[in-house]
């Protein structure tokens, strides 16, 4: 067991636990995450003075059970992370493969699109879109998906360029395979390991961005239990009860760290970082 294996195992464990917590939230959450009880506001977690076993992680400023909100919040982070990566992956991989395979004018257009995307300030534009279109889960997912495709495109393009000249592509061309067949059946499977690593990076980024948007009040709309929103709502109370921002903040940090450890381990195992 080297440090590398421990790190990867830890990543798998973290993501697994969060996934299970999110999926099973309706069964394991002790309370309804939306149920307010104004008589039970700001109860500290069980291990602190004044805490109760009824609310293991305490309650928020509206008396909602913090553990239940945290568990349901895992769903939102994972849902947004996954859907944003699927959307951005579709856009980025398509553009990258087209540019890398065809080269010339097509590649010029793809490179131009990537350059334009990179010069647009990410958070500012995401905030603007959500503010002007209206905040909802769908809008946040689509906004992030439409903005985070650049790294997919860059990696798909470079790896496609490396694969393009290999013999099995030439063989497929000689056998008269259609372009669509070559791109989807010959090129894509051979660059997939690199794209999986990118997907983990982008998922981590999407989750952090959702939290940041929700923190600024322009992400997932209340009363949904997004971790970023929980930190925003707890901000006014953090001086007297720091745990209101510590609990969702640590959850967010640990999940993103887990995804990054997972991605790093995959990179090592698939050799995605070292191929020329």
């Amino acid at each position: 067991m080297s440090l590398r294996h421990i790190a990867f195992g830890l990543g798998v464990l973290i993501v697994g636990v969060v996934l299970v917590a999110g999926v099973l939230a309706p069964y394991i959450a002790p309370h309804d995450p939306f149920a307010q009880d104004l008589m039970q506001r700001m109860i500290p977690p069980e291990w602190m003075d004044g805490g109760s076993a009824l609310h293991p992680f305490g309650t928020d400023q509206l008396g909602r059970d913090y553990l239940s909100r945290l568990l349901y919040g895992a769903r939102i982070s994972l849902l947004i992370g996954t859907l944003a990566v699927v959307t951005s992956g579709l856009i980025g991989i398509t553009l990258g493969i087209l540019g890398g395979y065809f080269g010339g004018r097509v590649d010029d257009v793809v490179m131009f699109a990537i350059t334009c995307r990179l010069s647009i300030p990410l958070i500012l534009v995401a905030l603007t879109v959500v503010a002007f279109v209206g905040s909802s889960l769908t809008v946040v997912v689509l906004t992030l998906g439409l903005l985070l495709w650049d790294r997919f495109a860059v990696v798909a393009r470079t790896t496609t360029m490396q694969v393009r000249t290999l013999d099995y592509i030439a063989a497929a061309q000689a056998a008269g395979a259609s372009r669509l067949h070559i791109l989807s059946r010959e090129v894509l499977p051979n660059i997939l390991s690199h794209l999986v690593v990118v997907a983990t990076l982008e998922m981590a980024l999407a989750i952090l961005l959702e939290a940041a948007l929700s923190f600024l009040g322009l992400g997932v709309p209340p009363p949904l239990p997004s971790w970023g929103l929980m930190i925003a709502e707890g901000k006014d109370y953090m001086f007297f009860s720091p745990w209101v921002i510590m609990i969702p903040g640590i959850a967010l940090f640990v999940l993103v760290l887990g995804i990054n450890l997972l991605g790093d381990g995959l990179r090592d195992m698939l050799g995605a970082g070292r191929r020329p």
């Binding site: 981590a204 930190i231 921002i245 967010l252 940090f253 993103v256």
Partner: peptide, 17 residues
């Protein structure tokens, strides 16, 4: 990796506290 996983707005709040 740890630095990358730290939500910046949260780190800011923790430093403030």
């Amino acid at each position: 990796l740890i630095g990358q996983a730290m939500p910046s707005f949260w780190l800011g709040l923790v430093l403030i506290i």
